[in-house]
Simulated assay, not measured.
Amino acid sequence: MRTYLLRKTAIYVLTFVAAVSLNWVLPRLMPGDPVQTMINRAAVAHPESIAAMHTYYENVFGLDVPLWQQYLNYWGALLRGDLGTSVWLFPTPVSEVIGGAVPYTLALMLPSILLSWIAGNSLGALAARNRWLDNTLLPVGYVLTAMPYMWLAILLAWSLGIVAGWFPVAGGYDFSMVPTWSWAFFLDLLHHWVLPFLSLFLVQLGGWAIGMRNLIIYELEADYANYLSALGAPRRLVRGYAFRNAMLPQLTGLALQIGTVVGGALVTEVVFAYPGLGKLILSAIQNQDFFLLQGALLFIVIGVLIANFVIDIVYVAVDPRTRTGMQGATA
């Protein structure tokens, strides 16, 4: 087990280094000059003033040195926990800007991922042994899982927000309210949270339900299930073994799906103007804010890597065959 953890940790560290390097390179491939964009917003017309400001801000953001030195400086600052200063919201630190957006994204993503996984697997397992539910769930699940996140978000905003008027379609809370620790503000947050959550939850729900339904049917037709049935084992026992075996591919699928869900969540936030990382990344791109874009993408990379690492460990804990194989390999 210890060798397995060390090997996995080494793989994730190398993946982190590669992802962070790409995170540094990609923003610099964007066309335009972030410093010039910042000066243009200041509406400075005098050429000498523009040149002086350009030199000053290049020095402030560390853009006046060669690219290789910028890369090394980036890693040095990152190891100190310094994500730099936002160009768009100068002189606000990037960590402060991201800190205001992360709670919204986590409040949106974590419940949608976990609840859709739990509910989808439960419905899929029920559908595998209930013909009526199977005939209903299968077509609905295919429709839901085929829907792009942003398309379903637009549909929900139009139907439940604009037409029905049940939910707001923009923002994380009412613009007339001031964030406070109060029940009124919490309920308003929840009111704005429902539609973005549903758009992520429903798409994932269909995929998990169909996957579990197919896996349960496959497991119930496997040799071990037929053997147990021939021995007179209770049907509930056979289904229990089938469910446990079917859960293993679903755990692997959860690890693979996290990156897709993150992308869907970011687009959904843009549709609903939800004040999370998705809206922040869009603003960073529009304002050519290298440092804010790097910080937001870095948080996403770290989050996805940690989630996958946790799922890897859970998989080992759930599947005894994996532990047996590791002990055999060690011996």
Rank of each mutant, 00 (worst) to 15 (best):
T105H: 00
W151Y: 10
P139T: 09
L123F: 09
I98C: 05
A127H: 03
A128W: 02
A119F: 04
L144G: 06
W151F: 14
L126M: 04
T85L: 09
W117I: 00
P139K: 09
Y104F: 07
R131L: 13
G100H: 06
L126N: 03
Y142W: 14
N135V: 15
S95F: 01
M147V: 11
L114P: 00
W88H: 07
W117E: 00
A125R: 03
R131F: 11
A119Y: 06
F90S: 12
T92K: 02
L114H: 03
D134G: 05
T136A: 12
T85R: 05
A119R: 05
L152M: 14
I98S: 03
T145L: 11
A101L: 02
T136F: 13
A125K: 02
G99P: 13
A153D: 03
Y142D: 14
A146N: 03
L110R: 09
T85C: 02
L89E: 12
S86M: 11
P111H: 10
P148M: 11
P111C: 13
S86F: 15
A101N: 02
L83D: 12
S122L: 14
T145M: 11
T136S: 07
L138Y: 08
Y142L: 15
A107Y: 07
L152R: 13
I118M: 07
P103Q: 12
A146E: 02
S116F: 09
L106H: 10
V94S: 09
R129P: 06
A153P: 06
I118W: 08
T145S: 11
N130T: 09
A128K: 02
S95Q: 01
V102Y: 05
M109C: 11
W132S: 13
M150L: 13
I98L: 09
G120R: 02
L138N: 10
M150Y: 14
L152I: 15
W117G: 00
S86C: 13
N121Q: 10
G84R: 08
T145C: 10
P111L: 11
L133N: 06
L115N: 03
L138E: 11
P139C: 08
T145D: 08
L133P: 08
I118Q: 01
S86H: 15
S95Y: 01
W117T: 01
Y104S: 00
T136V: 14
L110M: 15
I118K: 07
A119P: 02
W132D: 11
L114G: 00
S86E: 15
G124K: 06
F90I: 12
A146S: 09
A119C: 03
V143W: 14
L89Y: 12
T105P: 00
L138K: 12
L108D: 03
L133V: 08
L106N: 07
I118S: 02
V97L: 07
V143G: 15
L115V: 12
A101P: 03
V94N: 06
V94I: 01
L133Q: 05
G99E: 10
M150S: 14
N130Q: 13
